[in-house]
């Protein structure tokens, strides 16, 4: 891998502790605000075309009254071996030296091949021109491009925040501290389920979390080796469910 001049030897990763996620949606809106994602109008919901770079999926498990709702935040997994990258005919999406899957909006011609290729369904297509009433444009983030109709977009790992953090450390001639760069979702997450950091730094929080027994990645069988990883949900009832399943001959679920 070519090391990238100027930005240091970082590799960014996100660790998600599923055990802490309450499904409160703070990350969803924080991401939307930070990244100038257009308003998801009712019409967009009804057509299943709402855009949400990070989403909280909710799964039901079991039956009433022992039903459980499981939440999991899912965003672009920034795969090392990303299925979306080779299919792009115009190289609008590529992997950079810092472990990020980058979407270059001005290259994108909107073939949507990448969205078809993505097993995590975290890429969103702009079916409409994004519009804001004039006064609401005041709060748009000047650091992030507005994507127009016909452009693919997805979680960028808040690359503009990463750049800002690296730049700040460089201008102050000091090494980057762990936790100094926060993505918008992580900054909001009240339970600290989301953690962002440099996996190349063995002392970083994400590196520590990667060693946790509960470490897993989504769909490892696909071999995408994501830079987003998860820590499993802990549930005391699980043991009971499993042993129950054993004794009943395997139809417990």
């Amino acid at each position: 891998m070519v090391t990238q001049a100027g930005f240091g030897n970082h590799k960014w990763a996100m660790a998600v502790d599923v055990d802490k996620c309450t499904g409160c949606q703070a990350c969803v809106l924080a991401c939307q605000v930070e990244n100038n994602i257009p308003l998801n109008t009712q019409d967009r919901f009804e057509r299943n075309r709402s855009i949400s770079w990070i989403r909280v999926e909710r799964y039901w498990e079991g039956e009433f009254p022992d039903i459980k709702a499981r939440f999991i935040p899912i965003m672009c997994q920034h795969c090392e071996n990303a299925p979306c990258e080779p299919v792009c005919p115009v190289f609008a999406t590529y992997h950079n030296a810092e472990g990020m899957n980058v979407q270059v909006y001005n290259r994108c011609v909107g073939t949507r091949y990448c969205a078809n290729g993505c097993p995590y369904i975290v890429r969103f297509f702009n079916y409409w021109e994004p519009v804001w009433p004039e006064s609401l444009r005041n709060h748009l983030n000047p650091d992030v491009t507005i994507r127009s109709r016909g452009i693919m977009e997805k979680c960028s790992f808040c690359v503009h925040r990463v750049r800002r953090g690296v730049r700040k450390a460089a201008s102050e001639s000091r090494p980057l501290e762990d936790g100094e760069i926060q993505t918008a979702c992580q900054e909001a997450c009240p339970t600290s389920a989301l953690n962002f950091g440099d996996i190349n730094d063995p002392n970083s929080r994400v590196s520590q979390m990667k060693k946790d027994d509960r470490y897993y990645t989504l769909m490892p069988q696909l071999g995408t080796s994501p830079n987003v990883f998860y820590l499993a949900k802990v549930d005391e009832d699980r043991e009971i469910a499993l042993t129950g399943a054993e004794s009943e001959g395997g139809d417990g679920h």
Binding site: E61, D213, R214, Y216, V234, E236, R238, H253
Partner: peptide, 17 residues
């Protein structure tokens, strides 16, 4: 089971689960 939300019992590792 366990996709995408992997559930482990206390003390169980993700791999075991």
């Amino acid at each position: 089971p366990g996709v995408p939300v992997l559930v482990v019992a206390p003390g169980e590792t993700a791999h075991e689960a």
